[in-house]
Amino acid sequence: MSEQSIKLGEFGFAGDDHVVPFDVDALDVRGRAVQVGPMLDQILDRHAYPEPVARLLAEVVVLTVLLGSALKFDGKFIVQTRSDGPVDMLVADFATPGSVRAYAHFDDERLQQATAEGADSPAALLGTGVLALTIDQGAYMQRYQGVVELDGSDLEEVARSYFRQSEQIPTDVRLGVARIVVPGEGGGAERWRA
């Protein structure tokens, strides 16, 4: 796994590879907005994953950064899936104050078959299994791990289920991942954006 960095925005500035916390007192709402680009390119380009695998891993990276950047101590936040789908493992870890690593394991033959059959949605590629969210506070501290079932839902819904069941905090998660064309030499280059 390769390690990349992300910046935590303290003053509400947005931009590439940033996390911006927000708070709406009148509505009793708080959260984080994550925008990643170059960091995601570095992680995904290093492994040359097929498009469907790269998209899934990008979603896991964004989810990991979104949740891990809320840690109020030095440590790690790790998101990992284990499933029976063509993409049988995804793992990303966020180490404070902002380094990120990620890796995917998949069965190329099953992935090609699923893609040919049009069964290449994130939920279909993951299949059934578990998603584990682990907080590691470092040496001399016990890890905390929450596990939620992968049941054919997408990662947004799985994250919502985790918060409903384990944390009992009303939570919404929205993930958006795409390749964009950046104008430039040679007619433009495709870059990841989430």
Rank of each mutant, 00 (worst) to 15 (best):
A119V: 05
G98E: 04
L111N: 00
Y144T: 05
Q80G: 12
T96R: 13
L90P: 15
E59I: 02
G138W: 05
A116V: 03
T81A: 10
V100P: 07
L71R: 02
F106I: 04
G129N: 11
S99N: 11
L131Q: 12
V61N: 11
S69R: 08
T96Y: 04
D84G: 13
L63N: 04
K76Y: 01
F106Y: 15
G75D: 01
V87F: 05
A124P: 03
R110E: 11
V91C: 11
T134R: 07
F73N: 07
V79Q: 10
Q137A: 15
V130N: 13
R110S: 14
V65D: 07
I78M: 01
R82I: 07
L57T: 07
G75R: 02
F77R: 03
V60T: 15
L67N: 14
D93T: 09
Q113M: 01
Q142W: 01
D108S: 07
Q137C: 13
A119I: 02
G98C: 03
V130H: 05
T64P: 11
L131P: 01
R143M: 15
M89R: 14
A114I: 00
V53M: 09
I135Y: 02
Q112G: 04
L133V: 03
Q113P: 00
G68V: 05
F94I: 02
E156I: 02
A104Q: 06
D154V: 09
V65Q: 09
D108I: 09
A54N: 06
L63M: 14
H105A: 13
Q112V: 02
Q142C: 02
V147F: 00
Y103N: 06
K76W: 04
M141W: 14
T81F: 00
D93A: 12
A116W: 00
G127N: 11
Q113R: 09
L57V: 13
Y144I: 14
S83W: 13
A116S: 11
E156M: 15
A58Q: 06
T115R: 00
G127M: 10
M141G: 03
F73M: 06
R55Y: 12
L155C: 09
F77N: 02
L66I: 01
T96L: 05
I135M: 06
L66C: 10
V158L: 06
R101K: 06
R143P: 15
R143S: 12
E156C: 11
L56M: 07
G68S: 09
L56E: 08
M89C: 14
G85S: 08
A95E: 15
P122C: 07
Y140A: 09
E109S: 12
R143H: 04
T81K: 04
A104Y: 06
A54F: 06
E149C: 06
A92N: 12
V100N: 00
A119P: 00
A139K: 10
A104N: 09
T64E: 12
V65Y: 09
E117Q: 08
V62C: 11
F94A: 13
D74H: 02
D136I: 12
Y140H: 14
Q145D: 07
Q137E: 10
A58K: 10
L56Y: 10
S99M: 04
V148H: 10
D120H: 11
D93R: 08
S153Q: 11
